[in-house]
Computed example of a mutant assay.
Amino acid sequence: MKNEMKNEMNRVVIISGEGEVGIIEAHTGRPTKRAVMARIKRERCGGDRWAKAIAHVDGAEGFDVETGEPVGWIREYDIVIKKILN
C-alpha cells in the first residue's frame, strides 16, 4: 500500500490562492501524503488563503490528496510539472 501511494504521489500539483483566482505549482517535496498535507497547510496561511493538492493517477485521472475524491487531471498540470523537470 505504501509503495502504491508513493507511485501516485510522484506527480502532484498544489493549487492555491485568494478569492476565486489561484495558481498552479508542482509539489517538489517528498512524495508522501504527510509532506503534501504540510505544504497545503502552509499555503493556507492560517485560513487567509485556500489550497488543494491533486495527484496524477493515469491519463486524465487524478485524486484530491486531502479527501481522496477523484478529480480530473488537466493539461495545465502536466505543463507545470514539465517546467520543473527541465
Rank of each mutant, 00 (worst) to 15 (best):
M9I: 08
K6P: 00
N86S: 15
A35P: 04
I81P: 07
D78M: 05
V71R: 15
G72M: 06
E43P: 02
V65T: 09
K83W: 02
I23A: 14
H27L: 02
V80G: 10
R42E: 10
A35S: 08
G68M: 10
T67Q: 13
H56M: 01
R39I: 00
M37W: 09
V57C: 13
R30S: 12
K33C: 03
M1Y: 14
G29E: 00
G46V: 09
E18R: 04
G59D: 06
V21L: 11
K41S: 07
E18K: 12
M37C: 06
E8M: 15
M9P: 14
D48M: 08
I40M: 11
W73M: 02
G46I: 09
K83G: 01
A38N: 02
V71P: 00
E8H: 11
I81E: 00
T28I: 02
K52M: 06
G19M: 07
G46K: 04
D64C: 13
V71D: 10
N3Y: 10
V36Y: 11
G22R: 07
E25K: 11
R34T: 13
G47R: 06
K6L: 06
G72Y: 05
A38H: 07
I79L: 13
M37T: 03
A55Y: 13
R34E: 14
R42I: 01
R42N: 05
N86P: 15
T32V: 05
